[in-house]
Amino acid sequence: MDEFFYQIQKTDLSKFLNNIIQKNELYAPIKTDAIRFEKIESPEKIYLDTNADFPLKEFFFRDREKLFSFDKNKIKVEIEKPSKTRVFFGVRRCDLNAVKHQDFIFMEKHKDPYYSAQREDAILIGYHCKTAPSKYCFCGSMDLGDHYDLMFWEDESHYFVHVGTKKGENLINSSKELFSKTNIKLNEEHKKIDFTNRLKKKDISKLQDNPDWKKGVDKCISCAACTTLCPTCYCHEIKDEVTLSDLQKGERLREWSSCQLKSFTKVAGNHVFRENREERFKHRIYHQLQYFKERYNIEMCVGCGRCITHCPTEIDFVEIINEMKEK
């Protein structure tokens, strides 16, 4: 894609978003008791001061998904698709990368028709942070890439907009009168976000037995807020629900699960693989920072910091790792 920026007057942003609403569904962060991505009818309510509390995950990898219905031995697969194209505005760099990681798992590594149906037509418009929106952000320590259809950089009187894909370009073209081309090129400086290099990278594979993990483990209440709010965690469980009128009829469902729960590794015969909290606590962090990378050569974690911000006991695993001494 073209490396030159477009620009749009700040006062014209709502015109652009209204043009999107005409033909598509627009989702953007709205602040009520918390900040969530919600479908919006008018752009005035959009809240961009800080990142949303809940990531985009639920829109593509839904928390409860019907896989198929069954009747005795017959199964019927009906894959739901959103009725209109969904456009997401105001997505941060971390969350865009998280979507990319989920795309990798559900669309490249495995062909998951349910995820694909939700994800394929969606358009992602980013909003680039200047500085860390939360004190727990550490995206600067992670290896993030440019994954967006459009990305917005805020400036004093206008936004600089970079086009990432054809889908994004089409959106610009449909509101052509609002955008003008600039001669400024996208460079690495634009992608820097201040105060986000919190995690000091080290080889944690040798730190499995470090006593410092206990600082986090003792405070962990196994509530699974970290994995539920994580934009990249994809673990789930599968269950059947039958109807009462005919016990041979029913639905097979996929629901989010979490490695932080004892029930997650429970198998037939009531054996639990990760019985104690410490093993479960460490597993999440090692999966995010080490195991996934070993297997697929990318880190799973994107450094959004939600697992720390939303932890009721504020367990800061970044701080714990930073303070660990390598033997």
């Binding site: 509530c223 807020a225 989010w256």
Partner: peptide, 14 residues
């Protein structure tokens, strides 16, 4: 599992 698991899934503020 604790109540929190479903609670967070319901997008509640803690």
């Amino acid at each position: 599992n604790p109540v929190c698991v479903e609670c967070r899934r319901n997008n509640n503020d803690c």
